[in-house]
Design a protein around this nucleic acid. Structure first.
Ligand SMILES: NC(=O)c1ccc[n+]([C@@H]2O[C@H](COP(=O)([O-])OP(=O)(O)OC[C@H]3O[C@@H](n4cnc5c(N)ncnc54)[C@H](O)[C@@H]3O)[C@@H](O)[C@H]2O)c1
Ligand SMILES: NC(=O)c1ccc[n+]([C@@H]2O[C@H](COP(=O)([O-])OP(=O)(O)OC[C@H]3O[C@@H](n4cnc5c(N)ncnc54)[C@H](O)[C@@H]3O)[C@@H](O)[C@H]2O)c1
Lengths: 221, 221
DNA sequence: CATGTCTTGTGAAGAATTTCACAAGAAGAG
DNA sequence: CTCTTCTTGTGAAATTCTTCACAAGACATG
């Protein structure tokens, strides 16, 4: 955890599945570090990451070569390398829009702050809610959002408003200069291609389970 | 919404990405139905589903042929067909384990009940919480879970306990006979291969956004 | 009933991703 | 210093997924 001498080595294009697995490897590595493990092989990494050792090595090879033949990967070093690749070396400023049930749960989610995602503000358009504190973060009025954003320069907006308002809110946060959106509303949102959107659609995940139950696949995750 | 004369037509193996898209198409179709649209082309379906018309047709072709050449798809009929394919023709019984912030948010999530996922019980091991009502559903004690499950035969368990207890809880629900798990804890859980697990890992999604911001991809979703 | 327009269903091609398999490097033992 | 053991990094092969492209069917119109 000293220095990051090697740059994260940019490249042509990396598959989203690879990026997801890197996050997973990072978790496995941190747990290994917590157990005092010094080093980890691609086999061990694959085991807990739910993939194969060849996949692990291939994923890492897109960004450089971090292992030692015959020994495996140095846990602390690989944590640092993957953190760099994923852009976790810095703090990311997050706005949450929609101070309802799911929005409130996310504000106090430690899993975010642990990774350097800091919630600067929570926004809502309900005057009854504006001004309240949620886990130390004050709920702000929507009318302030653009003004606040000009000053605070948030990186990511999390949208947790009802589906029918998701598009409107998306347009607002984009015009406020935010370039990345995480959308929890079960509605597609359309933004300029300079903005990255990820959607988390829980009902859709449940439907995937229903499909699996009906079609008796034998699979795991 | 009358009868389902054609069986959902089973098959070799369908990609998870196809199943996800079917869920998406279903949403688009329902919105179209709400707007009074009678029929929809694969092009229109693709537009809102964020994919291409060829993909739509290919996805559907795995299960049968539901369209009319020159006309497109009958909205009501395709809703019914996709619902059948996904196993949404029936009610699915759900237990939520972990009555914390995210568990409580999920109990009252209308997006679940709208799709036929009914929360029968919420479980927690904190005696201070057991007995409370969350949106009309009582919080039950963990010690009852196996006994209740024998009677109620739940289909799906949603795990919303801290990561370090996810594995223990997973083993309990599996031994209670539950065959599908949706895991919100950011920890991999290991179960027999007869059990299907889906994990929703929100920190990982945020990390994907951080990666995109750092690597200036021009992409959307 | 022929003609024109539209849109499906689907093999085949193409692209992307995963798996294989092995040469090469690293370390310890003798 | 040589031998053995272990595990990486990576081209090539295999597999999976997506896109292409077009024949065939459906309807409307004249
Ligand atoms: N509750 C869940 O477990 C859950 C799970 C997955 C997805 N979601 C989705 O997340 C979204 C929020 O769900 P919820 O359960 O928290 O709902 P909620 O009703 O508890 O909260 C929605 C909040 O958004 C605010 N809001 C509404 N319109 C707004 C606007 N235009 N600008 C700013 N704020 C606005 C409301 O005042 C309210 O506080 C919904 O789209 C829902 O489908 C919820
Ligand atoms: N809060 C969020 O926004 C959020 C988002 C994504 C994921 N998660 C994950 O979801 C899980 C729950 O998060 P939370 O914020 O709701 O936490 P929480 O502390 O509010 O709730 C956890 C609940 O689980 C109960 N519990 C603990 N151990 C248990 C056990 N062995 N059996 C039964 N119940 C048990 C606790 O009594 C508590 O009520 C965590 O794994 C967290 O990482 C939370």
């Amino acid at each position: 955890m000293t220095r990051s001498p090697a740059p994260p080595a940019p490249e042509k294009h990396i598959a989203e599945s690879t990026v997801r697995r890197l996050s997973l490897y990072l978790r496995v590595l941190e747990q290994a570090a917590a157990r005092g493990q010094q080093t980890l092989s691609s086999d061990a990494l694959a085991e807990d990451g739910g993939t194969t050792s060849a996949q692990v090595r291939k994923d890492l090879s897109f960004f450089g070569s971090f292992g030692k033949r015959g020994r495996g990967y140095d846990v602390a070093e690989l944590v640092s390398q993957i953190s760099d690749i994923l852009g976790l070396g810095r703090e990311w400023k997050v706005y949450i829009v929609g101070a309802g049930k799911i929005g409130a749960a996310l504000v106090s989610y430690r899993g975010f702050s642990q990774r350097g995602f800091r919630v600067l503000g929570v926004y809502d358009n309900n005057p009854q809610i504006v001004g309240r504190m949620i886990d130390g973060v004050g709920v702000r009025s929507m009318s302030q959002l653009e003004h606040d954003a000009a000053r605070e320069m948030p990186d990511i907006a999390v949208i947790t408003v009802p589906a029918e308002h998701a598009q409107t809110v998306a347009e607002l946060v984009v015009s406020a200069g935010i370039r990345a959106i995480m959308n929890f509303a079960p509605a597609p949102i359309h933004v300029p291609s300079t903005v990255t959107v990820k959607s988390v659609n829980m009902a859709l995940e449940l439907e995937g389970l229903a499909y699996a139950l009906v079609h008796r696949d034998a699979n795991a995750s």
